[in-house]
């Protein structure tokens, strides 16, 4: 059993995440083609279609999270993030950890943080697993409780906190890249 407040919170956050990701991809098609090319998993003739498909899927998922409560949406989202995580893991395994992960918050984020895009790291893999776990959590059946004003206030504040914590976590991943770019000298 899961409380509807938590369910709504997860839905709203996931929806925002996919909205930003989808808009970012569709607005920077050529840039993303380069990023997908860099992952070296697909023939380059397919990357344009892939980016387009990913962007559309993400926008569809964004709408899905808001509109329906069917278990299909969390499952599809988890699968999509699973694919991303797998691609990241494959490239980490290949040692190509210097490529742009393509998971930044778009130009808006660049403006906001003024720091470079995150590269691949195991931190990203862990972050994605956390996202998958949270999304799957919302499949649990909810108790139908009537929500009051306080519930909505809670939802609003916790939503804002989730966004900020996610942004901070992403920034920490970037900072870690910057620190790792130094020569590692163990005393």
């Amino acid at each position: 059993m899961i409380d509807p407040v938590i369910q709504y919170l997860i839905s709203a956050s996931a929806s925002l995440l996919f909205l930003i990701a989808g808009v970012h991809k569709l607005a920077n098609l050529s840039e993303f083609q380069g990023i997908v090319d860099n992952y070296r998993l697909l023939p380059s003739s397919l990357t344009k279609v892939t980016v387009l498909l990913l962007g559309i899927t993400e926008i569809a998922l964004c709408g899905g999270w808001l509109v329906t409560q069917s278990a299909l949406i969390p499952l599809l989202s988890a699968a999509l993030i699973g694919i991303y995580t797998l691609s990241i893991s494959i490239n980490l395994f290949r040692g190509r950890d210097y490529i742009d992960c393509g998971c930044s918050f778009s130009n808006f984020d660049k403006l906001l943080s003024q720091t470079s895009n995150p590269h691949l790291s195991f931190g990203l893999v862990i972050r994605n697993f956390a996202l998958i776990g949270l999304m799957l959590l919302s499949i649990l059946p909810s108790n139908s409780r009537i929500l009051g004003t306080l519930d909505y206030v809670n939802m609003l504040f916790s939503f804002l906190c989730v966004v900020l914590v996610y942004a901070a976590a992403n920034q920490l991943l970037r900072n870690n890249n910057a620190i790792n770019s130094w020569r590692n000298v163990s005393e």
Binding site: S113, T115, A168, Q171, R174, N175, A178, I179
Partner: peptide, 8 residues
Amino acid sequence: TRQVGILH
């Protein structure tokens, strides 16, 4: 975290 990033 942002400030640390900008410092870097």
